[in-house]
Structures are given as C-alpha cells and as structure tokens.
Nucleic acid binder design. Structure first.
Length: 466
RNA sequence: UCCCCAGUAGCUCAGUUGGUUAGAGCGGUGGACUGUUAAUCCAUGUGUCGUUGGUUCGAAUCCAACCUGGGGAGCCA
C-alpha cells in the first residue's frame, strides 16, 4: 500500500487493482441507502476531485463516514477501479477511511458547497485555498511561473536576485515603503530638527524596492542576458482591480539589445507561457472558460498564433484622433494615453495585445534612450485587452553625456546615481529591458476580474490581513 | 486620493412612502429515495437589519460622520 495524489488516480497512471491511500479534503459526500457513500476528495494536485466509494462494511461507516462534511480532512485507502458511474474514468473502492480532522460546525464552515462571491472568498483568504477557483488560479500561476523561468533558462538567461531593500529613494517609479528599525515613539533628531537616519539600521534612509531594474542593469552589463523575478512594492494609494501594494515582477535586461529586440523577446516570452498553460493546465483552463470567462482559451490561442501588432505612439495618437469615437479625455501628442485610449487600441482597434513604441520623452523615465528625433524615447508598452499595461520597457540610455543631460533636465541628483553612471563610464553598451507585472499576466491568462484573486494573500491599501 | 454604488440570516439577495410578530433561495440539520456526482423530494432552525451620533411619540427605514466592500478614474506593472 502506498500514498497517491488525486491526479495519479484520475490520470490512469496507477494500474487498476492497485491498493493505495489518497489523502485530502472532502468536497462533498453523497449517501446511497443501498449501503454506500460517495466521497469526493481533493488534494490540489489537479482540478478534479477523486470519488471514493465507501461501502457500509467499513468499520467506522456509521460512526464517522456518514458524518463527514465539506472540509473534513481524510485518508482513504482502497483499490483503484474503473468507475461504474458517469463523470469519471477512475475511482477508489474504499476499504478504510481515516479522519484527520473534523469541521467544527458545518453550518458556519465558511467554504460551504455553494457559490460564493469573490469578495467573500477574499475575506476568507486562508480558506479560499480549498475552493475550485483559487486552486485553479494557483496551479495556473505556478505553471506560468515555471514556464517563464524555463523560457529564460532555455534562452541562456541568468536569474539574478536583486535586493528587496534599497537605499536609493530615487528609483522614480512611485511611492515607497520605508524600512526602519527606529523607535517610532522616540525618533532620534539632528540639531536642526530633522530625523537622524544615521542612527537607523542601515545608517541612512532605506525602502522596499519598486523595481529591480537599475540593479539588474549592472548584471546585464557583464553577464549579458539576465532577468529578475521577485516581489516589488509600491506604496501608492491605488484602489483598483489591477493594482497591488506587493506584487511580483519579471524584468529581463539584455546587453547589446535595442527596443525591437526586447519587443520580440516580450512576444516570444508571452507565447511560450501561454502555450505552457494551455497544454499543462488544460483542466484548470477548461474551468475558467466555463465559469469565469467564456472567451479565455480562444483568446490565448489567438495570441499564440498571431504576430503582435507594433505601433508607434505617434501613429496611435493619429488613429485615436481620427477613429470617430468620442473620448472623455482628448488625445494630443505629448500627453500620456488615458485608460480609455489604451483600451480602444487593444480592445477595439486591434482586438489583441498591442506593442506601443517610441513615446514622447517628457512623459517617460530618465533612463530611457533618446531617439534621434530629439522628441521621443525608445520605450514600449504591451497593452492587453481588458487589463491595459501588462509590460513596460525601454532601451536604456547608454551614452553618459545624454544621460547626464537628462538627469539635469529632470533635476535629479547625479550623486545618487553615481554607480548607475559608472556603468556608462566603464565599457558602456547599448542595452534594453522590460518589466512584466506577473499578477497582471495571471489575471489575463485566467480571465479573472480582480488582481487580488490571483495572488495568495493580497496586500493593498488598508488591506494586509492574514 | 477623487466620483458613483452597496452593507438585512452561515452565504446571495428581496423588503422598508418611519408604526405591532423581518422574507426567499442556497447552505446546514433530520428524513425519503437513488452507482450517486452543483443529485432530487419532504421537513426544519436562524437575525445587536455595518458603527456612532442626530431628528422623531416611535428608526432597519430619514439625516450626518465614520468604517468596510465593489465599480470607475488617477498613479503604474
């Protein structure tokens, strides 16, 4: 007798007639007065639960088996058999049922076998892991994560773990969380009344990172092809279905690459990940298609088959101005595109992900490489229908004189970027990279509406429970 | 942070032009039936009506503030 996962039983990997033990949680129990009970057991190894057929001859049938409710944890021993009923190819003919843990009060067990709203599940984030939807999301999330690592590994990229704590408050990508061990009730002050950060843990102000990009550029300028994949923090007071205070980001950075190179990288990376999900998590994707978003599989299939549409910002502005649609905000060259504009381009004009390139320099970050026209920078955004920006990237300014001029123009302190400038002083090379919001990718792939439902324990303004 | 909406049973919601005893479905429980599978059928219980304050003879209902959640916007990934 050996232990087996539900997936091993249902996939037919275990020979009919084998005696095994399956361990997991009860999803439903149905009794037949003919003297048997059907118990569906899930263990997270796949979407479906395995059906255990328990005859009344089992020792604890009356005392325990018929009292099992949704959520109880059990080990069921029996033989694998071809199912006599509809709905599954294989099942478990039980000879022994061991109960690990009961559900205190079935009436108030939060994950009762009925439809729950996503908001309700979020408020029970420690138990929503038992549900179909959260299980499916987490398996797809894992699949995407593994696929991305595999993709970069196969392409010869090194995974570089950039620091989560940073002393630079000038990364320029948003509000940051402070990291400090100072006693908040007794903050040390300098003579001039300002806080004396010299007494803090790092001897200076420290924060949680908003991006690994600047750090990983240093590794790209020596190891050539690198990427980061780790948590990122934004203290923005963003209350939307596509923002988190703590999220994961994938940031490849490539030496000797230009904007078109990384646009191509983004495209092949996404296609690789989508293919992996469709082949490896067909069971979960079928569920999303059926219950969450009826177009989700076709959409991924189309993205895989079609070439991404590339468009210059300047051309996009022209299309928006001439499309005849009335927007709440006017479209003008030099201003950032609004959500409604991005949505029109991705959802109506193209109907698929679109790569927008070469934005006006004044609305983009200091490190983006200036184009020869003097007006634009080599930046790109990948916009996905329904979500908006899923990837943002650029060629990096590798010319020290141009970078310095830009720092001056934006009144950024050069001292704080001394090590970043060194990369341009010593053997500089053209390089480029982008950042992929991992949870936004999971949202797109699953068809889920809210980003808070595709990360195990979401952190957002006024929300850090569990 | 701004705009809009919501908060009533374990869950999803209905109700209320202010007035005695607060409603349904699902879930739970008990039973019937059945190789069942979101089973079906019968029976059955459940409520500080988000919090605090105000108006009133009387508030779950009207008003105010606050809290929480949702949708949209901004910021971005």
């Amino acid at each position: 007798m050996s232990f087996a996962s539900v997936v091993d039983v249902l996939s037919g990997e275990i020979a009919v007639g084998s005696e095994i033990t399956v361990r997991g949680w009860v999803r439903t129990r149905r009794d037949s007065k003919a003297g048997i009970s059907f118990i569906n057991i899930h263990d997270g190894s796949c979407f479906d639960a395995v059906q255990a057929v328990v005859p009344s001859e089992v020792d604890n049938y009356q005392s325990e088996v018929v009292k099992l409710t949704t959520g109880c944890s059990v080990a069921v021993t029996g033989t694998v058999a071809e199912s006599a009923g509809q709905g599954q190819a294989f099942e478990l003919q039980a000879t022994k049922v061991h109960v690990y843990g009961w559900v205190e009060d079935p009436d108030t067990y939060p994950m009762s076998p009925k439809r729950h709203s996503m908001e309700y599940l979020r408020e029970h984030a420690h138990l929503r892991t038992r549900t179909n939807v959260t299980g499916a999301v987490m398996r797809v999330r894992n699949c995407l994560s593994q696929a991305l690592h595999r993709f970069f590994h196969e392409q010869g990229y090194l995974w570089v773990s950039t620091p989560i704590i940073t002393a630079s408050d000038a990364e320029g990508a948003g509000e940051m969380f402070r990291v400090s061990t100072l006693d908040m009730m007794n903050i040390p002050k300098k003579d001039n009344g300002q806080i004396d950060y010299a007494q803090d843990f790092f001897g200076k102000e420290a924060f949680l990172t908003v991006s690994g990009q600047l750090n990983v550029e240093s590794y790209a300028c020596s190891l050539s092809k690198v990427y980061t994949f780790g948590p990122t923090f934004r203290a923005e007071n963003s209350n939307t279905s596509r923002h988190l205070s703590e999220f994961w980001m994938v940031e490849p950075e490539v030496a000797f690459a230009d904007l078109n190179d990384i646009a191509g990288l983004a495209e092949s990376m996404l296609k690789y990940a989508f293919k992996a999900v469709l082949t490896e998590r067909a069971d979960d994707m079928a569920f999303f298609q059926q219950r969450i978003d009826s177009g989700v599989i076709d959409r991924l299939q189309q993205v895989i088959e079609q070439d991404f549409v590339h468009m210059d910002y300047t051309d996009a502005v022209e299309i928006l101005q001439n499309c005849g649609k009335k927007f709440e905000y006017p479209v003008a060259w030099g201003t950032d595109l609004q959500s409604e504009h991005e949505r029109y381009l991705a959802e109506v004009h193209v109907g698929a992900p679109i790569i927008l390139k070469n934005y006006p320099k004044d609305i983009k970050a200091f490190y983006m490489r200036q184009n020869d026209d003097g007006k634009t920078v080599a930046a790109m955004d990948v916009l996905a229908p329904g979500i908006g920006e899923i990837i943002g990237g650029s060629a990096r300014e590798e010319r020290l004189d141009v970078l310095d001029a830009r720092l001056d123009e934006m009144q950024l302190p050069k001292e704080q970027y001394s090590w970043y400038r060194d990369l341009r002083r010593y053997g500089t090379v053209p390089h480029a990279g982008f950042g992929l919001g991992f949870e936004r990718l999971v949202t797109y792939v699953t068809g889920m509406q809210n980003i808070r439902d595709v990360i195990p324990f979401p952190r957002a303004p006024k929300s850090a429970d569990f």
